[in-house]
């Protein structure tokens, strides 16, 4: 993973704009200060190793010590296993898996253990861990460094999956994920780390499972999350130019997703477009389309449409990677076709 210079400096209650990277860093600093049971571990996360490949954990080890902030060997199974274990004994670990593709190495720990121990123990034990990971195509890193695998995790009972798109949501969701009694996979979209936004109020919480209407509209509902929530907003200009009013819902939490907010919106607009970066088949869009169709059968003005990546690995070559990645024009095109009946 290429290390990009960071400007994350935890600053108390700054009112100026903040990046997602700074917001996440601030959330960790605040959580560490508020609760001595919060710990973190992952590759290169301590300050002698630069506080993480992009710097999300910067400053933590200097302030809270390398016992609570542990750089690990390259051993994802050992990282998640240790997080599970320390959480069983009452701590609140935030484990970092550098890139989402490397969660594959720890899949047994995540799926067979973290997700299931509460249930299999009849509620005697629980695994309140957060697994932070980042991903996102667009940097020419090829087939093993930029996949969106959220559907695998959302398909696992016992796990929660969150994917913020703004600095304030990043802060609020990370705080809520740390508070949460169950394992939460926390997905950070790499290309938006450095995009500035409104700063979060200190101690801000965004409830897990609550979506946000990021732009109101009347003709169709765009349901999206993570980096694509920003790309969808960028598509609004072209959609409006076609005389269409789109409502954008940023799910923020992929699982459990906010059905009520989505259903209320689609009941109003009669049309639903789901946008995610992941490949389309068997994706999160399929689940949303199914539920919307079940609950609004007969009230939809058009079938639910999904926009996502083609069913291929992420290609290296720039023109292919560009074609792979969903962009604002593609979202606008799909939205316009959906409303004008050309889907």
């Amino acid at each position: 993973m290429s290390a990009t210079p960071v400007k994350a400096k935890p600053s108390e209650g700054a009112a100026k704009q903040m990046t997602l990277l700074e917001a996440l860093n601030q959330a960790l600093h605040d959580a560490f200060a508020d609760d001595p049971k919060v710990v973190t571990l992952g590759e290169d996360v301590a300050d002698p190793e630069d506080g993480g490949v992009v710097g999300v954990t910067k400053g933590l080890s200097t302030k809270f010590g390398e016992n609570r902030v542990r750089t690990t060997p390259i051993a994802e199974q050992a990282i998640i296993g240790a997080a599970i274990g320390v959480s069983l004994a009452g701590y609140k670990p935030v484990a970092e898996i550098m890139l989402m593709n490397f969660t594959t190495v720890a899949m047994d720990m995540i799926v067979n253990h973290a997700a299931k121990l509460r249930y299999m123990s009849g509620g005697q034990t629980s695994v309140p861990i957060v697994i932070r990971t980042m991903t996102g195509a667009g940097f020419s890193t090829g087939g093993q460094h930029s996949d969106y695998f959220e559907a695998w995790f959302a398909h696992t009972a016992g796990l929660k999956v969150v994917a913020p798109s703004t600095p304030a949501d990043g802060y609020g969701l990370l705080r809520s994920a740390i508070d949460d009694p169950d394992p939460v996979l926390f997905i950070e979209n790499m290309p938006t780390y450095w995009t500035p936004g409104e700063p979060p109020p200190k101690g801000h919480r965004v409830p897990i499972g609550k979506a946000r209407v990021s732009s109101p509209g009347t003709d169709l509902t765009i349901v999206t999350y993570s980096g694509m929530a920003n790309t969808s907003l960028a598509a609004l200009k072209d959609i409006a130019a076609a005389g269409i009013s789109a409502e954008v819902i940023d799910l923020r939490t992929v699982s459990p997703w906010d059905q009520e907010t989505v259903i209320a919106s689609v009941a109003k607009t009669g049309r639903c477009l789901v946008v995610h970066e992941a490949v389309v088949p068997f994706g999160v869009g399929a689940e949303i389309a199914a539920v919307v169709s079940e609950r609004l059968y007969g009230k939809l003005k058009a079938p639910v449409v999904r926009v996502g990546a083609p069913f291929t690995p992420v290609p290296f070559s720039k023109p292919l990677e560009t074609a792979f990645l969903v962009n604002a024009p593609r979202i606008a095109e799909a939205a316009i076709a959906l409303v004008k009946g050309k889907h």
């Binding site: 890193t141 090829g142 087939g143 093993q144 460094h145 290296f316 070559s317 292919l320």
Partner: peptide, 10 residues
């Protein structure tokens, strides 16, 4: 070698 689809890592 890989039609540009693998890149330097693959």
């Amino acid at each position: 070698t890989c039609k540009g689809k693998g890149g330097p890592m693959h």
